[in-house]
């Protein structure tokens, strides 16, 4: 079943030169294993296909229930060279959160319970 990443995670992004970083943080600790399993380097590379020119790297921060992605070649040269509106990669965060996950029904049911008011 389909679940939007934005419904189980939040994120912040920034830059280092021509590389954008996106830190993706699980909204609840129990969603972190879903991020680890679903947000593979392949899946994220595919998501940003056509938007970045270099590879994707992934780091795990289980202590923060977060993953950190480095998107190389994301900023048209970066900093002052870049001609992009988002020259500093500030909104790659929500670009990644557009991703839609296909999850087992039991996981989706648990997520929906979490989102039910008063649950």
């Amino acid at each position: 079943m389909k679940v939007r990443l934005i419904d189980i995670a939040h994120a912040r992004s920034g830059d280092k030169g021509d590389t954008a970083n996106v830190g993706v943080i699980a909204l609840r600790p129990e969603y972190y294993p879903i991020l680890v399993r679903e947000l593979t380097v392949e899946r994220v590379s595919q998501h940003f296909h056509g938007m970045i020119t270099g590879p994707v790297q992934r780091y795990e921060l289980p202590n923060l229930n977060a993953l950190n992605f480095l998107l190389h070649g994301a900023l048209d040269g970066g900093g002052t060279l870049s001609l992009k509106t988002d020259a500093q990669g500030k909104v790659y965060s929500t670009a990644l959160l557009r991703l839609v996950l296909d999850l087992p029904a039991a996981e989706v049911a648990a997520i929906h319970r979490d989102h039910t008011p008063g649950a």
Partner: peptide, 25 residues
Amino acid sequence: TEQLVYEMGDPHSYITPDVTADFTS
């Protein structure tokens, strides 16, 4: 947490002139 991951590279090695900090700790 959002600020901790801002402009992060390799979280195991946040290199500064004084110390290498481990953000996974």
